[in-house]
């Protein structure tokens, strides 16, 4: 099936929210997310002739946005190489005692199946992700949501060793799972 392109005047009402949600979910900063939506639509406008109509317009626009997001990560890491790894050292351990045993426990959680519950769950998870330092949250979303491979994440985010990445991911997962326990499961 071939898709026709809509009038660019309609892009903001048609796709503005969808692109913004995609963007903010990954970059976390509202102003950056808005800029990326703008850059995406501008790039789309310039590349209009290249749109072959094979993918839907929405898929095509998200494809452009994906590239813009990756470019953004690359640019930011060049400026802030040290910041992420500083968290490794700065983060004090709230979850383990000196012998390396847990200070917390986890309850069993059953997958929310009703769509309303799932929506609520996603909101809770988002709130927990928002408690992470933004750069950590970006990294986490790259890994979990977009399944970007470890080597690529290290390169994109300027992380010096894969071991450091594993330690960061592990800490985030403990923190998130604990946050879910407090905010969702005990509801």
């Amino acid at each position: 099936m071939m898709h026709k392109m809509s009038d660019p005047d309609q892009w903001i009402p048609l796709y503005g929210d969808i692109l913004y949600r995609y963007s903010i979910g990954r970059v976390r900063y509202p102003d950056v997310a808005e800029d990326l939506v703008q850059e995406t639509l501008l790039a789309a406008l310039k590349a209009r002739e290249n749109y072959a109509g094979q993918a839907s317009e929405q898929t095509w626009l998200i494809g452009i946005l994906k590239h813009k997001i990756i470019d953004y990560f690359r640019k930011v890491s060049r400026d802030k190489t040290q910041e992420l790894e500083d968290h490794l050292i700065a983060d004090e351990d709230d979850y383990f005692n000196q012998q390396g045993g847990w200070k917390i426990d986890f309850s069993q959680w059953s997958q929310p199946d009703k769509s309303m519950e799932q929506e609520q769950f996603i909101k809770t998870l988002q709130a927990c992700i928002d408690k992470l330092p933004p750069r950590m949250a970006q990294l986490f979303m790259l890994r979990e949501l977009d399944d970007v491979k470890n080597e690529e994440i290290c390169e994109l985010m300027s992380i010096s060793t894969q071991n450091n990445l594993w330690v960061m991911l592990s800490r985030m997962r403990v923190q998130l799972r604990h946050c879910l326990d407090i905010n969702w499961i005990s509801q």
């Binding site: 660019p8 892009w11 903001i12 503005g16 929210d17 692109l19 913004y20 949600r21 995609y22 903010i24 979910g25 509202p30 808005e34 939506v37 703008q38 639509l41 501008l42 406008l45 929506e119 996603i122 909101k123 988002q126 979303m141 949501l145």
Partner: peptide, 20 residues
């Protein structure tokens, strides 16, 4: 992975429209 209630702000819409 964002709730449907998350929307592009009115100000941003206008800004982007001007740029386009």
């Amino acid at each position: 992975f964002m709730s449907e209630s998350v929307k592009l702000s009115k100000e941003a819409r206008e800004r982007i429209k001007v740029a386009l």
